[in-house]
Design a protein around this nucleic acid. Structure first.
Lengths: 238, 238
DNA sequence: GAGGTTTTCGCCTTATAGACGATTACCTGC
DNA sequence: GCAGGTAATCGTCTATAAGGCGAAAACCTC
């Protein structure tokens, strides 16, 4: 606990075991899903839990969750990772007090990681029984993703490098949980300069029909639209 | 560390001292300001720091920050409190590793807490030298507040129970950092059903002029507008 | 009651996005 | 190679939200 180096000693603060968890979301088979593994041992045996684990002595939280996720998916397939929240309920783990910091991760539809035998994608609309307080993290992560789809370019993290507008519509519809009109989606993405055409055409569909243009996101860095929709600065100052 | 009760023992997870910090924001003298105290001892002697401290054994993080804040302000004057982020930089405290979870708190303009001698409101636009990584928490808190002023009713936490539109305009202008037009602000607040007239008139101003109607927020519970501004569900399903 | 000050209201313009039908461009099968 | 089917794309209309601005209202003091 608390090495005394540098200048002076740390106050007598309590120390607590700390774990990191990840809510990794992806659109799988047309449904927004979360990466979970099935516990073998008590507590919560046979229930589904989020991937995660402890934090090493000189390791930051983000590095810790990246390390734990590497056992489940290729880390380079993680197109987004942001901190979600820290839970501190004293009884969230029946074995003793553990603080937990959760992250929201995203894997694109195009990635197809080979999962361990106890691990699977669970549709967020039809979750099996979950362990600990993990359901709360999942709920928060889904809400956060849905909100950010509207005012940021996080969509890039869910989508493949190149896609047709129909594919993008399907991804957004699945992630948001309601049908999105392709025309409007394209206009919104275009007006915000989030996507651009690649100049290529997709392979024609199996059932005929006009081949679609393919698009890509201009940037895979997270950006926020405007700052916000309302209460903007007066015109001259934008 | 990790009592073994219930079922099984905790994995051998590292434990770390954990502190809570609060970025308490309020509009003071027409400027958005943050509550800080001046350190007397090393490290960072004479620099300004956020209020906060350790977490007791059976205490949740929110309870801990509330307890620490009680030494600075009346807790019932805290009109808003939400978790911000957890920092884990190994060297954020030179004395040893400490994880820190920060909260965003808000105190209304109408509250005038009596502050300890080492404590003061510091304008966020003109901060003195700060201790540790506290400046990062402050920056994040200000950004979060400014964003939420646009799409939630957090404004209620900054404003008195009753106010004139001119007062609300001044509060919003100070908090956002740019001038807000009173006409638009009133219309936006009204359209979203966030405020309502009290039916009372304010005392006439000292310099003459028409006395203003007073208003109040309909609810002091946090609510989010719409869900979001764009990519809404199709009409039928709202 | 004249002149000054501030609030409140109404109207106009702009920006953004949802709805929907028309058109285009490709397929398959005859 | 042409008819019919299918999906992508475009154009136009409408709805909604919000910024700008000036006129009118309501109070003050002198």
């Amino acid at each position: 606990m608390a090495r005394a180096d540098g200048e002076g000693a740390l106050p007598e603060w309590q120390a607590y075991p700390h774990e990191v968890l990840a809510v990794v979301l992806s659109v799988r088979d047309g449904r927004l899903s979360v990466l979970m593994w099935r516990r073998a041992k008590a507590p919560f045996a046979r229930r589904w839990a989020l991937p995660g684990g402890g934090v090493l002595a000189h390791e930051r939280l983000r590095a810790a969750i990246t390390r734990h996720l590497a056992e489940k998916v290729e880390v380079r397939e993680l197109t987004h990772l942001e901190q979600l929240a820290t839970h501190s309920n004293v009884h969230r783990d029946p074995r003793g007090r553990v603080l937990a910091t959760a992250y929201l991760g995203i894997v694109p539809t195009s990635a197809t990681p080979v999962l361990p035998a106890d691990t699977a994608w669970q549709p967020v609309g039809d979750l099996p029984p979950t362990a600990f307080d993990h359901i709360d993290f999942i709920t928060a992560a889904v809400e956060r993703l849905r909100a950010k789809l509207s005012y940021t370019n996080v969509g890039h993290a869910l989508a493949p490098d190149e896609f047709t507008l129909a594919e993008l519509r399907d991804i957004f519809s699945a992630a948001l949980g309601y049908p999105v009109a392709q025309t409007n989606l394209a206009r919104v993405m275009d007006r915000r300069h989030l996507i651009e055409p690649t100049g290529q055409r997709s392979a024609p569909g199996h059932a005929g029909g006009r081949p679609a243009m393919t698009y890509r996101f201009r940037s895979r860095e997270l950006s926020v639209t405007d700052p916000f929709a309302t209460l903007r600065p007066p015109r001259g100052r934008r």
